[in-house]
């Protein structure tokens, strides 16, 4: 498979300063986004999945900042661009944002203004990235609305966001993300706020767009069902680190990290038997500012080796296609 990598994250670190001290929101995160593939990023709150998305787009606000690592655009070209070296408001970064990397939010109103029509906003986004006349931009906006499955796009283009249902608003959000014709899409919990039948439609739409355009999709979710439905490869995050990466089938069939194993057993299933109890993970996700030493999962880990897991940090997951786990147990098994 080894499709072309379009974005390489290498050893990315992000810290937030506060009066209580420094929070390491991301602590050495590495992965690749490949053309035509979907990387699912899954984890519980505070694991750093949204910070990862925002870092790529250089949308981390003070007091947060990137403190290490690289975000390489076109890593296989002779001259890749390191996005961490660009100013967040630089011209090049503004071109990348939207033009190369589109972002779909959980709540589409984050990307939309309540005061302008849907059409105005998409036309604006189109003009930002393409040298078109106003009329052509409008035609393009109508085409985009049609492409994301909005009925009667010629009419809907004059609607205000509040006149649309949640599902249609998210379709508009996707049209906005596509306005600059990006080849990378980051979707941050794109269906979490939607009803389940609408979610199914939006996931189907993302799959179709990806297939047609060969987009590299990074899909952030807390929902293992969405991962199973959508991802080609999966990265599992816990407290600012990737603890396991795997092709999706293997992740579910033979998870290698104790956290992944525990998480999969804790997920309620539509296939459950009546009154079926779930396996639980003891305790709760600690605050990212109170990260335990050693392997940060060790206090909750049913399989921990004691001393070693308390003191040593396991090596990061290997960057090969088959993935692996950042865990001494997995290292020893290999």
């Amino acid at each position: 498979m080894a499709e072309r990598s379009v974005l390489s994250i290498r050893d990315l670190a992000v810290q937030f300063r506060s009066e209580q001290g420094t929070v390491r929101a991301l602590d050495g995160v590495s992965f690749d986004l490949r053309a035509g593939r979907t990387l699912g990023i899954v984890g519980e709150s505070g694991c750093g999945k949204s910070v990862t998305a925002r870092s790529i787009l250089r949308l981390i606000d003070w007091p947060g900042r990137i403190t290490g690592g690289q975000i390489l655009l076109d890593p296989e070209e002779p001259q890749p661009t390191d996005l961490t070296a660009l100013g967040p408001e630089s011209r090049r970064m503004r071109e990348v944002r939207g033009g190369r990397v589109g972002l779909i939010f959980q709540e589409p109103m984050t990307a939309l203004s309540a005061h302008y029509t849907v059409g105005n906003q998409i036309i604006e986004a189109v003009l930002q990235h393409r040298d078109l006349s106003k009329a052509d931009a409008k035609a393009q906006a109508i085409a985009l609305l049609g492409e994301v499955g909005i009925p009667h796009p010629q009419r809907r283009i004059d609607a205000y966001p509040f006149e649309l249902s949640g599902g249609l608003r998210q379709r508009v959000g996707i049209a906005m993300a596509l306005a600059g014709d990006p080849d990378i899409l980051i979707a941050d919990e794109p269906t979490t706020a939607l009803d389940v039948t609408t979610q199914a439609q939006i996931l189907g739409l993302l799959q179709r767009l990806q297939r047609e355009k060969g987009i590299a999709l990074m899909l952030i979710t807390h929902d293992m069902g969405v991962i199973a439905e959508m991802a080609d490869e999966v990265a599992v995050m816990y407290l600012g680190r990737i603890v396991e990466t795997a092709p999706v089938a293997r992740l579910f069939a033979a998870p290698r990290h104790p956290y992944t194993r525990a998480l999969l057993r804790a997920v309620p299933s539509i296939l459950a038997t009546p009154r079926q109890r779930l396996s639980t993970i003891g305790g709760a996700v600690p605050h990212p500012g109170l990260r335990p030493g050693g392997c940060s999962f060790h206090p909750r880990c049913a399989e921990n080796l004691g001393e070693r897991c308390r003191r040593e940090v396991p090596a990061p997951v290997p960057l090969n296609e088959d993935g692996g786990a950042s865990c001494f147990l997995a290292e020893d098994a290999a």
């Binding site: 199914a200 439609q201 999969l264 539509i270």
Partner: peptide, 25 residues
């Protein structure tokens, strides 16, 4: 039936088994 079909099951082997119901509530 439509609701049940729309829930993504945590099992990649069941992927894409049914088309989602059309339209909105």
């Amino acid at each position: 039936e439509a609701l049940l079909a729309a829930v993504p099951a945590p099992d990649p082997g069941r992927r894409g088994r049914r088309a989602p119901v059309a339209g909105e509530v």
